[in-house]
């Protein structure tokens, strides 16, 4: 499992690899939690690539409901269809005439109106009733949705079937692989977590982060990669509102390579700090002077002083 994921450029430790393996073996959803930018969404993409299935992504937000998650009737098109049918009926009505013909015409129109042709298939329906192989379903940032949507997910994740009153019940022939992610802006209800395998993704340690930087930014020199990882590791110990995740590290490393930087000096770091730190308050913490000396310079010196 580790090797398969690594081939796709994603480095996992043992416990996450086990969790992913069990997700596939037990056909249970995987619930990933962790700070933003530690690679939760990325993992789902990589799983999809590794098992060779399409990825369907559902981004959650407050107020997400059945219409935008599961299915919706394309009612503007339905209206248009009615008008067209009316127009056609009026022009052809003279010859057909009589009540009974009108009845059957209306029945037929109804049937047409609620046929799959007018169904807008949103991500969850697409996952239950796929056109190809069972996909990997990524339900991103569940914590942003509200309790009602969670309860709705419970039912869907347990049965993998959807009932559309006008059409009937659709059931997944093969269970899709489901990955849920949460940034923990609020606690997701236990009932949902209980149906899933749970894994907390933490910030990586130095060795792992170094490896990730080397894999993701192959143009970077080893020397710079070591310093970049060390600097970010050090930065996470600072009292920041939003600590930089791996996504930020990679972004930063790419920026440094693009600028052609060989060394980490204060000027380069200050120019590119926007890649790592996204809040003004945090920027101020770092660029301010402490005890009369620029703090950033001190951090860099500390990193240089570390033995290789």
């Amino acid at each position: 499992m580790r090797r398969a994921l690594r081939k796709e450029g994603y480095i996992v430790d043992g416990s996450l690899a086990t969790a992913v393996y069990l997700t596939l073996a037990l056909e249970r959803p995987l619930f990933l939690e962790g700070e933003p930018g530690v690679g939760k969404t990325e993992l789902a993409k990589v799983i999809a690539a590794a098992v060779g299935r399409p990825l369907i992504r559902l981004q959650c937000y407050e107020g997400i409901d059945r219409q935008s998650a599961l299915y919706e009737w394309n009612f503007p098109r339905q209206m248009l269809h009615i008008r067209l049918a009316e127009a056609a009926g009026r022009s052809g009505g003279g010859e057909a005439g009589g009540e009974p013909a009108g009845e059957s015409w209306r029945d037929r129109l109804e049937e047409e109106l609620f046929s799959p042709k007018f169904l807008l298939r949103r991500p969850l329906l697409a996952a239950v009733d796929p056109q190809g192989p069972a996909p990997v379903l990524l339900i991103d940032e569940v914590d942003r949705s509200d309790e009602e949507f969670e309860a709705f997910l419970l039912e869907l994740l347990a049965e993998f079937q959807v009932t559309i009153p006008e059409i009937g019940t659709l059931k997944a022939e093969e269970k899709p692989v489901v990955v849920l992610t949460s940034n923990r802006t609020r606690e997701v209800h236990d009932a949902l977590k209980r149906r899933c395998l749970y894994h907390w993704i933490d910030y990586p340690d130095f060795a792992k982060e170094f490896e990730i930087v080397c894999v993701k930014v192959p143009e970077i020199s080893r020397r710079l990669a070591v310093r970049v990882s060390r600097f970010v590791q050090r930065l996470r110990r600072e009292p920041l509102f939003k600590k930089p995740g791996i996504a930020e590290t990679i972004h930063w490393a790419q920026a440094l390579v693009a600028l052609g930087a060989r060394e980490l000096d204060a000027a380069v770091v200050e120019e590119t700090l926007g890649c790592l730190v996204k809040y003004r308050d945090d920027l101020e913490v770092l660029t301010a002077e402490r005890e009369g000396r620029p703090y950033l310079r001190e951090l860099l010196q500390e990193i240089e002083a570390m033995p290789l």
């Binding site: 416990s15 069990l22 037990l26 395998l197 749970y198």
Partner: peptide
Amino acid sequence: AMAHLPLEDESALRDGWRAVLAHN
């Protein structure tokens, strides 16, 4: 889950069970 995991590897069993049993 135990049936799917290598029993001789203690850490694999631990990681697997943790994923199943711990919810936060």
